[in-house]
Lab assay of single mutants.
Amino acid sequence: QNEKLANELKSLLDELNVNELATGSLNTYYKRTIKISGQKAMYALKSKDFKKMSEAKYQLQKIYNEIDEA
């Protein structure tokens, strides 16, 4: 289960640069939040902690959705 979550989180991290570029014309909230979420996700992957990875995955998905809707 950890392996599956780690792969999903890696996949979301692969999209980080594209989504970060998409924040160029948006409010600074999005820029700041996506950077923080990305850092948390990288830390969670290194720690291999299921709870941290779950939270990081949720945060990344949430900010990606917010950027898409903005």
Rank of each mutant, 00 (worst) to 15 (best):
N65W: 12
Y58S: 09
D14F: 07
E20L: 15
D68L: 15
T28S: 12
S54I: 12
S37N: 08
N7H: 11
N17Q: 12
Q59A: 13
A41P: 02
D14Q: 14
E55P: 02
A70M: 09
L9E: 00
A70G: 04
Q59I: 10
M42I: 12
S37G: 05
N27G: 14
L60Y: 02
E66A: 09
K46C: 12
V18H: 11
A41F: 03
K40C: 12
K10W: 05
L60C: 03
I67W: 03
E69D: 07
A41M: 02
A44H: 01
Y30N: 03
K4C: 10
L26D: 03
E69Q: 14
K48D: 05
K52R: 10
Q61S: 05
A44M: 01
I36H: 07
N17D: 11
K31W: 09
I63S: 01
Q59E: 12
K4F: 06
M42E: 08
S54A: 12
I34A: 02
I34M: 05
K40W: 10
L12Y: 02
L9K: 00
Y43R: 13
K35T: 07
S11G: 08
L5R: 01
A22M: 14
I67N: 02
S47Y: 05
L12K: 00
A41C: 04
A44G: 02
L5Q: 02
T33A: 15
E66G: 03
E69S: 10
E8F: 03
A22S: 04
D68H: 15
Q1R: 13
K51W: 09
Q59H: 07
A70I: 06
L16C: 05
L21K: 13
S25Y: 07
M53N: 03
E66H: 04
I36S: 08
K35D: 05
G24C: 14
A6D: 02
A56R: 00
D68Q: 15
Q61P: 00
D14I: 06
Q39M: 12
Y64S: 04
S37W: 15
F50A: 07
G24S: 13
Q1T: 10
I63V: 06
K35I: 09
N65Y: 07
A22K: 15
A6T: 07
K46D: 08
E55M: 07
T33R: 14
R32C: 15
K35W: 12
R32M: 14
Y64T: 03
Y30C: 07
L45D: 01
Y43F: 11
G38N: 03
K51R: 09
N7Q: 14
N19F: 15
K52S: 07
A22H: 07
F50G: 06
N65G: 06
K10Y: 05
L60V: 01
L21Y: 07
L16G: 02
R32V: 13
E55S: 06
L60K: 01
Y43A: 15
A22L: 14
L60S: 00
S25E: 08
N2W: 15
S11Q: 13
A56Y: 02
L60W: 02
E15D: 10
E8S: 04
E15W: 12
F50V: 08
A70Y: 09
E55V: 09
Q61T: 07
L13C: 04
K10R: 12
K48R: 14
T23S: 08
N19Y: 15
E20D: 07
T23L: 10
K40H: 06
